[in-house]
């Protein structure tokens, strides 16, 4: 019987420690200078709001603020999918003042990373809609987070919140130059080099883009859609780009309807020339900067600009009046 008490002791001690630890960690997350902590704290008012995946980190805030004189905030995160972006936008508007302009890198629509979504479990105490999306994609993680508060903080998002506990992440961008091996191997057909960008894949993301546009319109926020730069020789690795373009046009119009029968364009070669900068109907701008940075040293890898590349990109955006 005495042994049984020890087993109960393990269980009770586990939960007591778990709740205490969880409480401390939650406080630390909420006090962090990490972007989402600031956002849920209501410390993220801005004039220009950005949204994207890791490529969206190319919206290098310190330089944009320097050249525009406007306050910025970036919702981008590695592999951030559109549906999560939409929820974050809603939460941003709930806790902070409305921005004048929303700039979205539309290359965030080609995949849904459930691991990342589950990582946002750490912010679910502040947002029911975030909880709903975590529950929708990773039900077990959602409920496990309720059971163990230490588990709630078991993610890269939490680690970043700790990393940026007392210093801002506004200057978060790749700080390396693409290495020579990668430059030389761009034509190889290994998985890493084969071109992971296939834009025909995730239909649901277009309805999420549609919702995002509607939210922006309802809040009188100007919205501009961009394609951030790729390493120039890598551009030819992108497939189904026309498909993306057509779907984006549909998704951003009021007449959007999701069609599961939309013809697939599997492995169709990209014709980036066909995507000229243009103003789309309904007042939404669509701007293609895929080949805006030609200098190879402006890239950290095939898909991400470094600070140097970001500055070239931002200068072009400024010249095109994107930030106006």
């Amino acid at each position: 019987m005495k042994k049984l008490y020890w087993i109960f002791a393990v269980i009770i001690l586990f939960f007591v420690g778990d709740r205490c630890g969880g409480f401390v960690l939650k406080k630390m997350v909420s006090n962090s200078e990490f972007r989402y902590s600031k956002m849920y704290r209501g410390d993220a008012d801005c004039d220009i709001l950005f949204m994207g995946n890791s490529r969206g980190l190319g919206f290098y805030q310190p330089y944009i603020e320097e050249v525009t004189g406007k306050k910025t905030f970036n919702l981008s995160y590695n592999a951030l999918p559109m549906n999560l972006g939409r929820v974050l936008l809603q939460d941003y508007l709930k806790y902070n003042k409305k921005p004048e302009l929303l700039i979205v890198d539309i290359t965030m629509m080609n995949r849904v990373d459930t691991t990342l979504i589950s990582g946002f479990n750490v912010y679910t105490p502040y947002s029911d809609s975030l909880g709903a999306i975590v529950k929708e994609h990773t039900k077990n993680v959602f409920y496990a987070g309720k059971l163990s508060h230490l588990f709630l903080h078991n993610s890269e998002i939490f680690q970043r919140a700790m990393f940026y506990y007392s210093n801002s992440d506004e200057d978060w961008i790749i700080d390396r130059v693409i290495n020579e091996n990668m430059v030389n191997a761009v034509d190889e057909q290994r998985p890493f080099y084969a071109g992971p960008f296939d834009y025909s894949t995730v239909e649901m993301m277009f309805s999420e883009l549609n919702k995002t546009v509607k939210i922006a319109k309802e809040n009188n926020i100007k919205i501009k859609l961009v394609v951030s730069p790729f390493f120039p020789p890598f551009v030819k690795k992108i497939v189904n780009f026309e498909h993306l373009q057509k779907k984006v046009k549909m998704a951003t119009g009021d007449d959007f309807h999701s069609s599961p029968f939309f013809p697939p364009f599997v492995n169709r070669a990209v014709n980036l020339d066909s995507l000229e900068n243009r103003k789309m109907s309904k007042g939404i701008g669509f701007y293609n900067y895929a080949d805006a940075v030609q200098d190879p040293t402006g890239f950290g890898d095939y898909q991400h600009v470094n600070i140097k590349g970001a500055k070239i990109y931002i200068d072009k955006m400024k010249a095109d009046g994107i930030f106006d």
Partner: peptide
């Protein structure tokens, strides 16, 4: 037994906090 309980609990906390499920 006390050391054992402490070790088990700490391991379970670490698993909850760092584990990949």
């Amino acid at each position: 037994p006390a050391f054992r309980v402490a070790s088990f609990v700490i391991l379970l906390w670490i698993i909850a906090f760092f584990g990949s499920f």
